Simulated assay, not measured.
Amino acid sequence: MLRYLPFLLILALWIYAFIDCLNTPESQVRGLPKVVWVIIILLFGEVLLGPIAWLVAGKQRQPARGGGSTPSEWHRRHSSAKWVAPDDNPEFLRSLKDENKKDEALLKDWEADLRRREEELRRKEGEAPNGPEDTPPPAKG
C-alpha cells in the first residue's frame, strides 16, 4: 500500500493544479496565457514540474487577511456582497408563490378532469344494455 502513496500524491497534486488552473480567471494568471499553463501542467505533470510551476508562478495569490487588515475591516470590505440567502430573498420567495399558484391551478384542473371521467364511467355503467340489472331471469324449462 505504501508503495502507491508517492504515485497517488503526484496524481493528486497534478489534478489539483489542473483544476485550479481551469477555474482561475484569466485576470489572475501570471506570466503566460492560461492555455499555455494548462499545456505545461498536462505535459510536465508526471515529474511535478508543471503543477509546481503553476502553484508557484502561475497564479496571483492573495494574502490570507487582505494585506494585514483586522478581521473586522476584512468583514466590512467583503460584506457588501449582494448575495442573499434564499429565505431572505424576496424575488425567490415571490417565485415560490407563483410556482405554488401554478401547481394549485394544475391540481384543480386534474381534479376536475378526474371527476368528469368518473361521471362518464358511472353513466356508461348505468346505461349498459347487458348489465347485471338488465339481464332477464333465466327461463324455466
Rank of each mutant, 00 (worst) to 15 (best):
G45Y: 03
S27A: 12
V35A: 10
P132C: 02
L49P: 02
G141T: 06
L49T: 06
Q28V: 11
W74E: 15
E118D: 05
L13E: 13
E91H: 02
G131S: 14
A64S: 14
A139G: 04
E119C: 06
R30H: 14
R122V: 08
V84H: 08
R94C: 07
L2N: 14
S69D: 02
P136K: 03
K82M: 11
F44N: 09
H75F: 09
A105D: 03
D88N: 08
P63K: 01
L96M: 05
G50Y: 10
W83E: 13
P6A: 11
V47T: 10
V84F: 06
A112Q: 12
I41G: 00
W110L: 15
D134N: 05
L106P: 01
R76G: 03
P137D: 09
P129K: 00
P63Y: 00
E46I: 05
E46W: 04
R3I: 15
L43P: 13
K97E: 15
L106C: 04
A17D: 11
S27T: 13
G68N: 10
D113K: 08
V35D: 07
A64G: 06
P33H: 11
E46V: 03
E119Y: 05
A105F: 02
E127G: 05
H75I: 09
V56M: 04
D103P: 06
P63E: 02
P6M: 11
I40Q: 05
P86V: 06
V47F: 10
G68P: 06
I10V: 11
M1V: 14
W14R: 13
P71C: 00
P51M: 01
T70E: 05
K82L: 12
I15K: 07
P132H: 07
G126Q: 11
A17Q: 09
I19L: 08
K124F: 02
V36G: 01
D88F: 13
R77C: 00
L9R: 15
K124Q: 13
E99G: 07
L107D: 03
K97I: 10
I39F: 10
G31L: 08
K102P: 04
A139M: 05
L114F: 13
K101V: 06
V47P: 00
K97C: 10
S79K: 10
D20K: 07
R94I: 08
D88Q: 09
F44Y: 13
N130Y: 07
R123I: 09
L13Y: 09
L22Y: 14
V35P: 00
F44V: 05
L107Y: 00
R77V: 04
A85T: 13
R122P: 00
P90R: 12
R94G: 06
D88T: 05
F92A: 06
L55M: 05
G50L: 10
W74F: 15
S69H: 04
W37N: 01
D20M: 04
N100P: 04
P136Y: 03
A128F: 03
V36W: 07
G31N: 09
D134I: 00
F92N: 00
W54S: 12
P138Q: 10
E120F: 13
P136D: 00
R77K: 02
L13Q: 12
Q60R: 13
L49D: 04
K59I: 08
L22D: 12
P51S: 05
C21I: 07
L5A: 15
P138H: 07
V36C: 08
K101I: 02
P138F: 08
L114K: 14
W37I: 01
A105W: 00
A57I: 09
K101Q: 11
L2T: 14
I52N: 02
P63W: 04
